[in-house]
Computed example of a mutant assay.
Amino acid sequence: MLGKLVFLAVIGVFLVDATCDTTKFVACQDKFADKLGIDRVYNWLNPLGLTLQIQDIYINGGVAAERGLNVVCNAYNSMVQCLSDASTTTFECFDIGYLLTHSSAPNQAYSYGFLMSMLQYQCGAGFYLASDNWQCMQRIYNGKNATMYGCITDFVLNAQEDPKRGCNYVQTGMDCFSKASILQGCPDELKYYGCESFRQYSLPQFARCDKQCSIDTQYRGI
Rank of each mutant, 00 (worst) to 15 (best):
Y128P: 03
L45A: 14
K191D: 01
C195K: 04
T22I: 13
N133K: 08
D216R: 12
Y98K: 06
I54C: 04
N60R: 09
C186M: 01
V13L: 15
M116E: 03
T23I: 12
G49W: 02
Q122P: 05
G150K: 15
Q138N: 08
D132M: 12
D95M: 07
F198M: 07
A27G: 04
L36K: 01
N133T: 06
Y193H: 07
A27V: 11
Q120I: 00
R139F: 08
R199I: 04
Y121F: 08
Q108V: 14
F25P: 03
A146E: 09
T89E: 03
Q120E: 00
A105M: 10
Q53C: 08
V6G: 15
G126C: 02
T23P: 05
K4S: 13
Y110G: 03
M79D: 02
D210F: 10
C195Y: 01
W44A: 11
I57M: 06
Q122Y: 09
F7S: 14
N43K: 02
Y58K: 01
T153K: 01
I59G: 03
F32P: 03
S131V: 12
E189P: 08
C73T: 05
A33T: 08
T88V: 04
V170M: 04
L15F: 15
S214P: 07
A105E: 11
G68L: 06
S117N: 10
Y201R: 05
S103T: 09
L36N: 09
L52C: 08
A18W: 11
D85I: 10
Y121L: 07
T89M: 04
A65V: 11
P106H: 08
Q135L: 15
V26W: 10
N46V: 09
A159F: 02
Y121M: 00
Q138A: 10
V80R: 04
Y219A: 05
V41H: 05
Y58W: 03
D56W: 00
A130T: 07
S131F: 15
F114Y: 11
Y169R: 03
N70Y: 06
H102F: 02
Q29C: 07
G12D: 10
L8I: 10
N145W: 07
E196L: 04
A125L: 12
Q122T: 11
T51M: 04
L69A: 06
G185D: 09
L15T: 11
A146F: 08
T147S: 12
V80N: 11
N168L: 12
P47F: 05
Q135T: 15
I215V: 15
P106V: 01
C213G: 02
D30P: 09
A109L: 03
I54M: 03
L183G: 04
G150I: 07
Y141P: 07
G150R: 13
D162C: 04
I57N: 00
D132L: 15
S178C: 13
Q122R: 11
Q53R: 10
G3P: 10
A105S: 14
